[in-house]
């Protein structure tokens, strides 16, 4: 028995070392750094205890960033999840035309976020952008906006670009999930006289739950950690209207040299993602069916 345990440990240890080195040690270091006033430039710092966490609670910019993050994430999760599932159902069958459509939908995924950001900045430009020019040419001048300049619009304009860029990526996960559902279940549902909606509700959805869990968790984490698109398009502006937690941390660290404070924000972000992901898994686990 002892030998067996030793052998098991031998298999576990390399992975554990790597995991500790790349995940556990940095996470613990972050936690410790969040208790210091490290400026990121020197090796000197003072311990400040939980001061940064208190400051975060009182910081209106952090509050705004958190609120923007919720708006951004909800918009991205709802649209990216819904659209990717919709497109996956449309192009699920392996026909030549569907393969072409899948490639088109997937294409933005291979373009870097910064490039996507720059392309959409030109589209959104209020003076020379193609979106306003299109609206004006259609006689819809009243709809033309400063898409990235209006504080109430900026975060949604970027959220649109985010799910435009990633819907094709998660669509692939749904296609894989849909194709793994046994066809005979649909045949049975058909014989039983189930409508298309009922077939989806009682056959597709429960069997798609594992894929949906992955998509939901991935989209949530991705939207909470979204960074490059916002930095490229607005840098968090105007007046912090598109600042989210990741850009807040970046600005604190590299603009204001408050690394300790930025790390405290990172710890809060990590906790938020952990809690949200935990509840998502629990929620979707309830819908899961095992045959």
């Amino acid at each position: 028995m002892k030998t067996r345990n030793g052998t098991l440990w031998l298999f576990i240890i390399p992975g554990l070392i790597l995991y500790s080195f790349f995940f556990i040690i940095p996470a613990v270091s972050s936690l410790l750094l969040s208790l210091t006033n490290w400026d990121g430039m020197t090796y000197q710092f003072d311990w400040v205890g939980l001061k940064h966490y208190g400051d975060l609670a009182r910081d209106p910019v952090f509050g705004k960033a958190l609120g923007n993050n919720v708006k951004f994430s909800l918009t991205v999760i709802i649209f990216q999840f819904g659209l990717s599932l919709f497109f996956a159902i449309l192009v699920m069958k392996n026909t030549k035309l569907n393969v072409v459509y899948r490639t088109i939908f997937f294409f933005p995924t291979v373009v870097s976020s910064v490039s996507i950001g720059f392309i959409w900045m030109f589209v959104y430009d209020p003076n020379i952008g193609s979106l306003n020019l299109l609206l004006n040419s259609l006689g819809l001048e009243s709809l033309a906006r400063s898409w990235l300049g209006e504080p109430s619009l900026a975060i949604y304009s970027i959220a649109f670009v985010q799910f435009w860029g990633h819907t094709g990526q998660v669509m692939i996960i749904f296609i894989a999930g849909l194709q793994s559902i046994p066809k005979d279940l649909y045949e049975v549902a058909n014989i039983e006289g189930a409508s298309r909606w009922n077939a989806f509700r009682y056959v597709t959805w429960p069997l798609l739950a594992p894929s949906a869990t992955i998509v939901l968790a991935y989209t949530t984490i991705q939207s909470f950690k979204s960074f490059d698109l916002i930095i490229a398009m607005t840098d968090g502006g105007p007046n912090y209207a598109s600042e989210i937690l990741s850009t807040f941390m970046y600005h604190q660290a590299f603009t204001y040299f408050s690394f300790g404070y930025a790390t405290a924000a990172a710890v809060v972000l990590m906790l938020i993602i952990m809690v949200v992901t935990y509840f998502q898994f629990r929620l979707l686990k309830a819908d899961r069916v095992v045959y």
Partner: peptide, 16 residues
Amino acid sequence: ILKNASGTKYEGALSL
């Protein structure tokens, strides 16, 4: 001041 200035970056203003 340029209309929609809050949505215009420096490069855009320079180009105009």
